[in-house]
Simulated scan of single mutants.
Amino acid sequence: MSDEPSAREPGEDARIDALEERLRAAREREEERSRPALGAEADANYRMGNRVLAELIGGIGGGALIGWVVDEVIGWFTGKAQHGGLVVVMVLGIVVAFRNIIRIANRRPD
């Protein structure tokens, strides 16, 4: 055997070709497996839906929490608990949440 590339054994090229074919097939399978199923557009829609849901839950929950705190503070000073603050601030939270949802829906896609 010599160090020249032309002096290969006859079966060596077949083994290299078979290895290259298996590597190509493995790369194709990996690309197919790692490709997103529905594409980037579905992922963007999923994120937008989660953001809308978070706005709605945050508006209602945040308004209810702040309203409850307001009612408790007023109740400490007056000696009786009333739920007017809870209702008013929760409605404001819902209004703000819907305003944000409308702004998200009207935003033009990039």
Rank of each mutant, 00 (worst) to 15 (best):
M1G: 04
S2R: 03
D3R: 08
P5L: 05
S6K: 01
E9P: 06
P10E: 01
P10N: 03
G11D: 09
E12M: 10
A14W: 00
R15N: 01
D17E: 12
A18T: 07
L19D: 14
L19W: 14
L19V: 11
L19E: 14
R22G: 05
R22M: 10
L23I: 15
A25L: 15
A25V: 15
A26L: 08
R27E: 15
E28S: 07
E28Q: 04
E28M: 08
R29A: 14
E30W: 07
E31S: 12
E31L: 13
E32A: 14
R33Q: 12
S34T: 09
S34G: 03
R35P: 08
R35I: 02
P36I: 00
P36D: 05
A37C: 13
G39Y: 00
A40K: 13
E41D: 14
A42G: 12
Y46G: 07
R47K: 04
R47Y: 11
M48R: 04
G49P: 11
N50E: 03
N50L: 14
R51D: 04
A54D: 08
E55A: 12
E55K: 05
G58H: 00
G61T: 00
G62M: 03
A64K: 00
L65S: 15
G67V: 03
G67K: 05
G67C: 01
V69Y: 09
V70I: 12
V70T: 07
V70A: 02
E72F: 04
E72Y: 05
V73L: 06
T78Y: 04
K80S: 02
H83N: 03
H83V: 07
L86P: 15
M90Q: 06
G93Y: 04
G93E: 08
G93A: 10
I94Q: 02
I94H: 03
V95G: 12
V96Y: 10
V96Q: 13
A97R: 10
A97K: 02
F98G: 10
N100Q: 15
N100S: 09
I101Q: 10
I102E: 03
R103T: 01
R107G: 13
R107K: 07
R108D: 12
P109F: 09
P109H: 09
